[in-house]
Amino acid sequence: MSVLVFSSVLFATSIAAGLLGALTGLGGGVVIVPVLVLLFGVDIRYAIGASLVSVIATSSGAAIAYVREGLSNIRIGMFLEVATTLGALLGAYLTAKISGHWIAVIFGIVLLYSALSSFRKWPSSIPVGHVNPLARTLELSGTYPGPDGPEPYTAERVPLGFGIMFGAGTLSGLLGIGSGAVKVLAMDQAMKLPFKVSTTTSNFMIGVTAAASAGIYLSRGYIDPTIAMPVMLGVLGGSLIGTHILVKARVKTLRSVFAVVIIALGVEMIYSGITGRI
């Protein structure tokens, strides 16, 4: 295959991944790794390197819109980034210790989880009401625009949320993904933050978390410029198109289709990892 064909096909695939990732909220990075590994036969370490770079691009791109809306909570985000960046260092360290087969299997499981969580209707968070003293000390509160004016909120179960965030960071560093689904789980379900605040703050954190493992990836040679170039430009372009076109009516169908694709890729990753083809 010539470099032109490889770059063009990868660029087109990445646009599609970025577009679908933005429309469904699952992120584009999550499909880039299995596509590179299973379809293009690229070593999984190059694949996670390219994916991580595209994750930084899309999260920073989407964050421009979110921070303007003022929905993301930078204090909560910054506090939890202590957990995610430490986790990301651990994850990036583990990629060198764990064999490619196991990384493929873990990746497959995370793909299945992401797809299933996109189907699941989370029960809306009902605050317990008593103020967490840790949340007060750390000023983990804010207001968000509700139907009847600004509604205040305060984080609950701070240590649990912090712990889940450490896990999310580890997965991000190990697999080169944003692990937004796990981050939202920590904030929405564990810390009982409003859903909109959770998703936008999660996005705020993805770029910083990814940057923490990117330095280590770079020094280990996981980031190959000739693979990362079409992936980064394609995913960024696709996600920018995705956030600007409004096809809300079709998003539900699209999400189901995309989730099925992700499930198929997840099963294939696990199978290939176990049989040693990756």
């Binding site: 770079v53 930084i56 691009a57 920073s60 990814a210 940057a211 330095g215 770079l218 410029p225 980064m232």
Partner: peptide, 13 residues
């Protein structure tokens, strides 16, 4: 290309 990617990594920093 790699320099561009380093700039990208530097953005969240």
């Amino acid at each position: 290309i790699q320099f561009g990617l380093v700039l990208l990594i530097a953005t969240p920093v």
